[in-house]
Computed example of a mutant assay.
Amino acid sequence: MIYGIGTDICDVRRIQASLERHGDRFAEKVLSEAELATWRERSARWPERGVRYLATRFSAKEAFSKAIGLGMRMPMTWRSCEVGKLPSGQPVIVLHGALKEWFEARALTAHLSVTDETDYAASFCVVEKQGPDA
C-alpha cells in the first residue's frame, strides 16, 4: 500500500550559489559522511559534477521527506537520510539513527528515482507500507 509520494525539482544554479555563499558548510549540512566523501572526490576532479551530485542528493532528500509526510521535522534530518546506490547504479535511501527507527517501526520501504540535467535536478520517491495491515 502506498504510504506517500514525494517529488522535488532543484535548480542546480541555486545549489552553486549556496556553495559560493557558505562554502563546504552547506554540503556538510546536507550530506551524510559517505555522501560528503563522494562529493569532495567529484568536486576535486569535476567541479560541475560535484555541484550536480549535491543537487541530486538535496532533491532526493526533499522528495523523501515529502513522501514520509514529515518535511524537515524530526526525526527527519538532512544527514540521517542518505542516498546510496546499488551495484546496478539504482539509487536507494539509506537511513540512520532515529529516522531509521521511525521508518522501520512503521514497516515502510522507499523507492527512489533521481535525474539531473545542466540546470536542474529532480527526484521522485514512493514510500510503501509493508505487512498485514498495509
Rank of each mutant, 00 (worst) to 15 (best):
H111Y: 07
K129L: 00
A110S: 09
G4F: 00
S113G: 14
T7S: 13
R40I: 09
L31A: 05
A34N: 14
L36N: 11
T109H: 10
K100A: 13
L19C: 12
E33K: 12
M1P: 12
V94F: 06
E117R: 10
K100R: 09
R21Q: 14
K129M: 09
R49H: 11
E20I: 15
V126Y: 03
G6M: 02
V127M: 09
C81T: 15
R42I: 00
L112A: 08
Y120W: 10
A37G: 06
A55S: 07
P75I: 03
S113A: 15
A121D: 08
E28Y: 13
W46D: 05
F124W: 07
S18C: 11
S113H: 10
A121G: 08
A44K: 03
A134T: 11
A107T: 13
L31W: 00
E128Q: 09
V126C: 04
R13H: 14
A98F: 03
G131E: 03
I5Q: 12
D119I: 07
A55Y: 03
Q90F: 04
D11M: 14
K129F: 00
G69N: 05
P47Y: 03
V12E: 12
Q130R: 15
A17T: 14
A37V: 14
L95E: 12
I68T: 09
L36K: 08
R42K: 14
C81E: 06
L99K: 02
S43H: 00
E28P: 06
P75N: 01
L31I: 00
E35T: 12
R79E: 11
S113K: 06
A34V: 14
Y53C: 02
A67K: 07
V94P: 01
E62L: 05
R21M: 01
A17L: 08
R57H: 07
D116K: 02
K129S: 11
K100C: 07
F26M: 08
A67W: 03
V127H: 12
L36V: 10
C10K: 05
F58M: 06
L54R: 02
R52P: 01
H96K: 11
R14A: 14
K61D: 04
P91C: 05
V92G: 11
R106S: 09
G71M: 04
T56A: 11
I2V: 12
C125W: 05
F26T: 14
M1T: 15
T77H: 10
I93P: 02
P132R: 08
P75Y: 03
A60D: 02
A98W: 00
V114A: 08
V114W: 02
D24G: 14
R21W: 04
S123N: 11
V51A: 03
V127W: 08
T7G: 13
S123T: 12
Y120V: 15
M76G: 06
G131D: 11
S123W: 03
A105C: 06
G6P: 01
S59V: 11
V51R: 03
A134D: 13
G50A: 05
R14C: 07
H22V: 08
G89I: 03
S65L: 12
A122M: 06
